[in-house]
């Protein structure tokens, strides 16, 4: 079927990752907010993880002859 699902997955996680990273960066000194997550700026860290995952998906989708998609997790 004509749609490579890696495009929407990649785009969505890049977008969400970007939002969380920026928000995490802006709120990096808000200790009260991150007391919930044991003092870890989880938005910044996890935002970057999502960003990397999204970019990886976009990269895999953009490669030529990758239409069928190699099996990958």
């Amino acid at each position: 079927m004509g749609l490579d699902i890696r495009w929407p997955i990649g785009l969505m996680f890049t977008l969400v990752g970007l939002v969380m990273t920026v928000f995490g960066f802006i709120t990096r000194s808000d200790a009260a907010m991150y007391s919930r997550s044991l003092g870890i700026n989880i938005n910044l860290i996890w935002g970057v993880v999502l960003l990397i995952f999204g970019a990886l998906m976009l990269f895999l989708a953009s490669r030529k002859n990758g239409a069928g998609g190699p099996p990958q997790k």
């Binding site: 969400v16 995490g24 907010m33 989880i42 938005n43």
Partner: peptide, 11 residues
């Protein structure tokens, strides 16, 4: 609810 600050909570 215990661990997620806004942002991660949405996710």
């Amino acid at each position: 609810k215990r661990y997620c600050p806004t942002g991660l909570l949405g996710l």
